[in-house]
Simulated assay, not measured.
Amino acid sequence: MTTPNFADDTQGRELENLLMLAMNEPAQRPAFYRTLLESTVLVLTDNTAPQGEVVLEAGSPLSLQVWEKQDGTRALPFFTSLAALQRAIEGEHPFLALPARVLFEMTQGTELFLNPKNEYGKEFTAQEVALLLQDGGVNKPQERVVEAGHEYLIGQPEHYPAAMVDALTTLFSQRKPVRRAFLALIHDKAHDEQPNLLVGLEVEGATEQEIEDLIQEAGSVASEALGDNEAVDFCLVSEKERGISHYLIQHTQPFYQRRWGSWLRNIIPSSGIA
Rank of each mutant, 00 (worst) to 15 (best):
F255E: 10
E239T: 14
C235R: 00
R101M: 01
E208F: 04
S271G: 12
A88C: 11
A31C: 05
G227Q: 11
V221S: 14
T2W: 05
Q51Y: 10
D46A: 15
L21Y: 11
V145E: 00
R144W: 00
G149I: 00
K122P: 00
L42I: 12
E217D: 15
R101C: 00
S220K: 02
G91N: 08
I268L: 15
H159K: 14
V138H: 08
N17Y: 07
T107H: 08
E92V: 06
D213M: 10
V43W: 11
L198D: 00
S223G: 13
V221L: 13
W67N: 13
Q51V: 12
S39H: 08
A222Q: 05
M106G: 01
D71E: 10
R29I: 12
V146L: 00
Q194Y: 09
L42R: 07
L114S: 03
L62P: 05
Q194T: 09
T35I: 01
P4C: 09
V41R: 11
V54Q: 13
L85V: 04
R175V: 15
V232R: 05
L18M: 04
N115Q: 04
Y256N: 07
A126N: 06
N196L: 03
Q257E: 15
I154T: 00
A22E: 08
P269S: 10
S262Q: 15
L248H: 00
N118H: 05
L37T: 05
P141A: 01
K69F: 06
F182H: 10
Q11Y: 09
A181K: 09
L64K: 09
Q156F: 07
G200Q: 01
E212V: 01
S271Y: 05
T73Y: 03
T107M: 13
R259V: 10
D228C: 02
N5L: 13
E111G: 06
L18G: 01
L168Y: 06
L131M: 15
N47W: 01
S271C: 06
A7K: 12
E38F: 02
A181S: 10
K189C: 00
A27W: 13
R242G: 13
A148L: 08
L85N: 05
